[in-house]
Computed example of a mutant assay.
Amino acid sequence: MSDEQPGSDGRIGALARELDALPLGDRLRLDRANWRRIGIALVVYAISLWLLTAFVVPQFTPDSADSVGLFVPVIVVSAFVFETLDSASGMGFGATIGALLFVLGYDPLAVTPVLLLSEAATGIVSGLFHNEFQNVEFGLDNDSAVEATRVLGIIVGVGVLAVVVSVVLTYFQFSIPDVYIKSYVGVVVLLIASVTIVQKYVGSATDYRPRLLIGFAVFAGLNKGIAGSGYGPVITLGEIISGVYEKSATAITSAAEGIVSLAGIATFFGITAAGVEINLMLLPSVFAGGFLAAILAPYTVRTLPNRALQYLVPGYALVLVAILFAQVL
């Protein structure tokens, strides 16, 4: 048996690989510290909901929307379901619930800032609990943790620039026609998802290739800057193709999107100075469902065998492609 510490070869996800090799009972078991942190997160959840409904949302809700209930059951449940899938696969929350909200008749200025605010909270919470449940390691303890932290920094750096560009271009009327954006994102995700699935069937080498991963991070950032969407699928699938363990790839993307969304929030509140009115009436509903899912999904990833994610992630990406193409047609 090797004397090397987990992650000594620099591969991201060494600890997750070790955990995945244990029996299901061991993966299901949580210790007292885990439960204590879950309890703290639930207290933060309750306080945050109170602050949102009592102070934040009333300040950014037009008078015409005062009669709308703060909690819409179908949106709460949908946010829970879609955020569970997003935190477990590293993609899809914005595309799925955004499409639903548009179908329900909500205006983009009542949807996009709410999704960014919600994703900031749920992404960071999900990333913390992915780390808590050992789907990924962030820190300086070993080579695997250092490399995961470095990749997170690269993805966040590129993503922050991209999201600022996409928000500014979108809300200052310098945008590409919607049909071209969605077609572009759909084709890109379809190609990358197909490559990922082919790799699993033909048994291609999955050695860790950090330079390739950095290239995908740059491409995902440019993609978000151009299209304003499709960031999660590109970066998650790119990580997997680059040799990152599936569980760790979804964890890194969740954490990155949470941090990147903070830049989007700052940009949105910045453009209010230019006279753009935002509407946060949907925030309590989206946050109520999404925050709980951000805790549950990392635990689900911990308990599932990694081979399930090998097909869940690209398979769900193809579902998102179908949703995008359905909106175009």
Rank of each mutant, 00 (worst) to 15 (best):
A274Q: 13
V185R: 06
D141T: 13
A65Q: 12
L318Q: 05
S183C: 06
I192E: 09
V160E: 02
V151R: 05
I124C: 02
F82Q: 07
F138G: 03
V111A: 03
F55W: 13
S254C: 11
R27N: 05
S89V: 03
S204N: 09
F219C: 04
L292F: 11
Y171K: 02
D31I: 03
D66N: 10
A16K: 03
V198L: 15
V160Y: 02
L30Q: 12
F287R: 00
A99I: 00
T112S: 14
T206F: 08
G215T: 14
V260G: 06
Q310R: 15
L237Q: 09
I252R: 01
D86S: 05
G203V: 10
T96V: 09
G123H: 05
K224F: 15
D107I: 00
I97F: 04
Y299I: 07
L304P: 05
N279I: 03
V160D: 01
L329I: 15
S166V: 04
L22R: 12
L70C: 00
P305Y: 05
R17S: 11
G127C: 00
G232D: 09
T303Q: 12
G39Q: 06
A33P: 00
A326V: 14
V313Q: 02
V111D: 01
A120M: 12
V56K: 05
V160Q: 05
S175E: 15
G225D: 14
V81C: 07
F133I: 03
G69A: 13
V319G: 02
Y106P: 01
G90I: 00
I278F: 06
R32G: 13
R209K: 14
L320H: 01
G290S: 15
S248L: 04
I240C: 07
L19K: 12
L115H: 00
I214H: 10
I176Q: 12
T122N: 13
A308T: 10
A251D: 02
L320K: 03
V187W: 06
F172H: 14
M1E: 06
I265G: 04
L320Y: 03
R37E: 15
L24M: 11
Y106R: 08
P113R: 02
V286H: 00
A21Q: 13
D143G: 15
V111G: 02
L24I: 10
N279L: 06
S8H: 12
D86G: 00
N34W: 10
L309V: 06
Y180A: 14
L292P: 04
F287A: 07
L28M: 11
P58L: 07
L152V: 04
L292E: 07
F291R: 11
V319I: 10
K200Y: 05
Q59S: 14
L237K: 08
A293R: 01
W50E: 12
T250W: 02
Q310L: 09
A255Q: 01
D63E: 14
R11I: 14
S194H: 08
G98A: 01
G39C: 06
G238E: 01
K200V: 06
V103L: 12
S126H: 03
F216I: 14
L140P: 04
G186N: 10
Q59M: 14
N142L: 07
E18G: 08
S166F: 07
S183T: 13
Y299N: 05
Y45G: 10
L262T: 01
D3E: 11
N223Y: 09
L42F: 12
E257I: 07
A21V: 04
